[in-house]
């Protein structure tokens, strides 16, 4: 590796483009990315204007695309982290409790004098099952 005799200044454009990256990635790899671009520019030296324009263009396009990729990756990771079993337990619990509540409201408002035995069991069981699922969901969340 050649000794470094001069350090080119970071073009403002690349520093600004780094802002497109998620903060964690920018903090971790931002200086290294700038250093690499600096190395590339140094090797390009006093090349033609067209060469410098082409370098700026390809670096800009690459930084924009990879920033988008990193953002998508962070979003994917976050969605994956939230897709815990607790989430499904909570949904199921809500559904069961909602069904029971709807059943009770229907029974109270309907002119029927006596509830069927099936409806009675369902009405009693649904909130119990719902509560059990909620408790399990809370335990799962605490364990994570």
């Amino acid at each position: 590796m050649k000794p470094i005799t001069e350090q080119a200044t970071d073009p403002l454009l690349f520093r600004v483009l780094l802002l497109l990256y998620p903060p964690d990635v920018r903090r971790e790899f931002g200086p290294a990315i700038l250093q690499l671009l600096r190395d590339q520019r140094r090797d390009l030296g006093q090349g033609t204007t067209w060469g410098r324009i082409r370098f700026c263009w390809t670096a800009t396009a690459d930084l924009c695309l990879s920033a988008l990729r990193e953002r998508a990756s962070v979003r994917r990771d976050r969605a994956h982290a939230h897709a815990s079993p607790a989430r499904y337990h909570t949904w199921a619990a809500g559904l069961l409790i909602g069904m029971a509540a709807a059943n009770i409201v229907y029974d109270v408002l309907s002119p029927k004098l006596a509830m069927g035995i099936g409806a009675l069991i369902l009405t009693a069981l649904a909130p119990c099952l719902g509560l059990l699922l909620l408790l399990r969901a809370r335990r799962l969340v605490r364990r994570r």
């Binding site: 671009l37 690459d62 695309l65 990879s66």
Partner: peptide, 11 residues
Amino acid sequence: LGAGTLYGLLK
């Protein structure tokens, strides 16, 4: 490889 692509890959 562009700088962004390379460091994304390294990450």
